[in-house]
Design a protein around this nucleic acid. Structure first.
Length: 269
DNA sequence: CATATGTCCTGAGAGC
DNA sequence: TGCTCTCAGGACATAT
């Protein structure tokens, strides 16, 4: 998502529109709309960064705009999937593109404008190391004594930042680790495999521009489908044969920590 | 302190 | 057709 909107770097925010409709709940904003618009206006977006799953627009002057898309939020440079769920429109000047749109069907996402202190407190301090920069020691150090199911722990952003439900399931499959296993039961070798699987799966998914599921949730910044869904080994493949050579298993679905979890009970020991 | 659960919101698809 | 039910790239407040 970050790569798709890199073109807004160097752009100046001329105006921020926050469309409101009575048939959808307004975007969760901090601070309030007027203050947000006033503080954003005239600022230049110096850099587009990322904090786990959040998109971070670093402004001149040190403030940051943080977009947290949750399930169905998108950042776009072109027309969104529907106009009904357009949540914000930044009118830009002086750069490669002239607008940045934030769209969110379910509206669970948030948009915040934070000074450096608030950012450190409300964002940085709440996130563990980034999943793409995990060291071999991070997982065993942070989870080695936890009694939680390993899949639930991987989704905890304070442990590791950036892992979502699809990629937790896929990485556990690649690493041959049962998602239901208690963290404290995993061996060093399993933690090592899991780290490598997370890096591989996430990097591959980024190259494929994410997973567009059946309801068309995730799209890239140009409102095009991602293609990683065709690479899913277990996610949403309940009842299908495990793709691993010589494995006779069938993909199962269980619920762990309120989230659907897919795995092969045969080869994920 | 660590871990579990309910809740926020909208729309698609299944089943009757 | 129209209804109800379940489910969904997530995170947080609150309870235990």
């Amino acid at each position: 998502m970050r790569r798709g909107v890199l073109a807004v770097e160097g752009c100046r925010i001329e105006r921020l529109e926050l469309p409101r409709r009575q048939d959808v709940k307004p975007l969760t904003l901090e601070p309030t709309a007027r203050a947000f618009q006033r503080r954003a206006k005239g600022r230049t977006i110096e850099r587009v960064g990322r904090a786990g799953k959040r998109l971070v627009f670093e402004l001149d002057g040190g403030e940051r705009i943080v977009f947290e898309p949750r399930m169905t939020g998108l950042a776009l440079l072109t027309d969104p999937p529907t106009t009904k769920h357009l949540r914000a429109r930044f009118e830009l000047s002086g750069g490669e593109v002239d607008e940045l749109l934030l769209w969110d069907r379910r509206g669970l996402g948030t948009l915040r404008l934070l000074d450096e202190e608030a950012y450190a407190e409300a964002v940085s301090a709440k996130l563990g190391p980034d999943a793409l920069e995990l060291t071999p020691e991070d997982l065993p150090e942070r989870l080695g004594r936890s009694r939680r199911a390993v899949k639930v722990a991987l989704l905890d952003q304070a442990i590791v930042a950036g892992i979502g439900n699809i990629y937790a399931a896929e990485a556990l499959f690649v690493a041959k680790v049962d998602p239901r296993r208690e963290c404290s039961d995993l061996s060093r070798a399993e933690w090592r495999r899991l780290r490598q699987a997370l890096l591989d799966v996430l990097e591959e998914a980024i190259r494929y521009e994410g997973s567009t599921l059946g309801d068309g949730t995730y799209r890239n910044a140009l409102n095009q489908d991602g293609s990683y869904q065709s690479c899913h080994r277990v996610y949403a493949r309940t009842g299908e044969r495990c793709g691993r050579k010589r494995c006779r298993g069938v993909v199962e679905r269980v619920v762990l920590g309120q989230r659907a979890t897919f795995f092969c009970p045969e080869c994920q020991g």
